[in-house]
């Protein structure tokens, strides 16, 4: 006959396990609230492009990168990343604008991060990274390459000017 081993858990350990589990549940709920209730999105790669022709194909929006106004206060920006610059390097929009970024690379992997926003994307050749942000405070928002891409990496930056 075998007897089950009795596992005695100290009350302090039980309390600690309850606190740990409780924190985990609260954190998961908060992430869920951000994702589903507030609507935070992760960078999406919706479209694939040919990195060898993306900058030269006349049908490609990245052959003429820049800002397009879709409606008052609503914009989209096509940004081409290449060693070692972003094209365009400067974008100007009025305050309150909703701007959708379509960023791709024609050579190596880059990063695209806009300071003081939650826009932070990997830019992979052949893929288009997309995110939308509402610029509701005037000022300058620098964007930088966050992926080391060679000797000129540190010079790879630009800025968004949000006019009042």
């Amino acid at each position: 006959m075998t007897t089950k081993p009795i596992i005695e858990i100290d009350p302090y350990e039980k309390t600690w396990m309850r606190i740990s589990l409780g924190l985990l549940v609260v954190f998961i709920i908060m992430v869920g609230v951000a994702g589903y209730a507030l609507g935070f999105q992760l960078p999406a790669s919706e479209t694939r492009v040919n990195p060898q022709t993306v900058a030269t194909d006349p049908n490609s929006p990245w052959s003429n990168p820049g800002l397009r106004e879709l409606a008052p206060g609503k914009y989209e920006v096509y940004i081409l990343a290449q060693i070692w610059l972003f094209n365009p390097r400067e974008i100007t929009v009025p305050v309150g604008s909703t701007v959708t970024f379509y960023v791709t690379s024609k050579d190596v992997q880059h990063g695209f991060k806009i300071q003081d926003t939650n826009i932070n994307m990997q830019i992979i050749p052949g893929y288009v990274s997309t995110l939308t942000h509402v610029f509701d405070k005037p000022g300058e928002y620098p964007y930088i390459c966050t992926e080391y891409c060679g000797s000129g990496h540190a010079a790879m930056f630009g800025k968004i000017i949000v006019e009042p």
Binding site: L23, F27, A34, G39, T117, N118, I119, L131, T132, D136
Partner: peptide, 27 residues
Amino acid sequence: VMAIFVVTLIVLWGSVYYILISRGVTL
């Protein structure tokens, strides 16, 4: 020590969450 650990964890996590929310939604 464990109480300090829990409070630190909550404060750090909460501050990062606050920064995320205050920077605005990515759509």
